[in-house]
């Protein structure tokens, strides 16, 4: 699982926790890993990017244009925004949830209607997940990020036990059982 994963979404969707679970996974697999996060102003409902690089030796913590093996997108519009970072033939795992950005809220712009088709044209493999619906089913809308990590783990060819261990080591114990359910649902899509 030597790989570059770009996690994109909207501030507040939990991209940081997602990257930390992957970091724990890299530790468990005894691989080098760097994570790069966004804190501060950009977190306030803005477009956020988290870089996860796992390899025998990682230098820059940032994934360059055309250098991501996988884009894990928590929101459709953010998925298409960062497709330039995907390697030719790379994989996009996208949450089909739509979160309206301010220009759409005010009516200045329309939310693009055909994002999934456009994404499909730009990648080797597209996995679309209705993670919000799944998270609602298990009674925890905040677990969208863990559903997505489950879906990603499957694509990475990681066993459920491995990703579940990483989740357990990363998350607060009180939240584990609920999120394990989210992880399982995401993994078994």
């Amino acid at each position: 699982m030597r790989t570059n994963i770009l996690i994109v979404g909207v501030g507040g969707q939990g991209t940081l926790l997602a990257s930390r679970i992957l970091g724990t996974l890299a530790v468990n697999k005894n691989l080098d890993c760097k994570l790069s996060e966004v804190h501060g102003m950009s977190q306030r409902g803005g477009s956020v990017v988290t870089n996860v690089k796992i390899a025998d030796k990682v230098l820059s913590p940032i994934i360059g244009l055309g250098d991501a093996d996988i884009i894990l997108a928590f929101e459709q519009l953010e998925a298409i925004r960062y497709t330039n970072y995907l390697k030719k033939g790379g994989t996009i795992v996208v949450n089909t949830q739509q979160i309206m950005p301010m220009p759409v809220i005010t009516g200045a712009r329309e939310y693009p209607s055909n994002i999934l088709e456009e994404l499909d044209k730009r990648c080797g493999k597209l996995i679309a997940v209705d993670a919000l619906e799944i998270a609602k089913e298990i009674g925890s809308v905040k677990s969208v990020n863990v559903v997505m990590i489950g879906a990603l783990a499957k694509q990475l060819g990681i066993s459920f036990d491995e990703i579940d261990n990483a989740l357990k080591q990363t998350i607060k114990p009180a939240l584990y059982e609920l999120n394990k359910a989210a992880l399982e649902k995401g993994y078994n899509i």
Binding site: Q43, R44, G46, L77
Partner: peptide, 16 residues
């Protein structure tokens, strides 16, 4: 790097 320009609505940070 060739960068494809896609015209998308921006998503600036906002008050919660």
């Amino acid at each position: 790097q060739d960068v494809e320009k896609i015209d998308l609505p921006v998503r600036p940070p906002v008050m919660c």
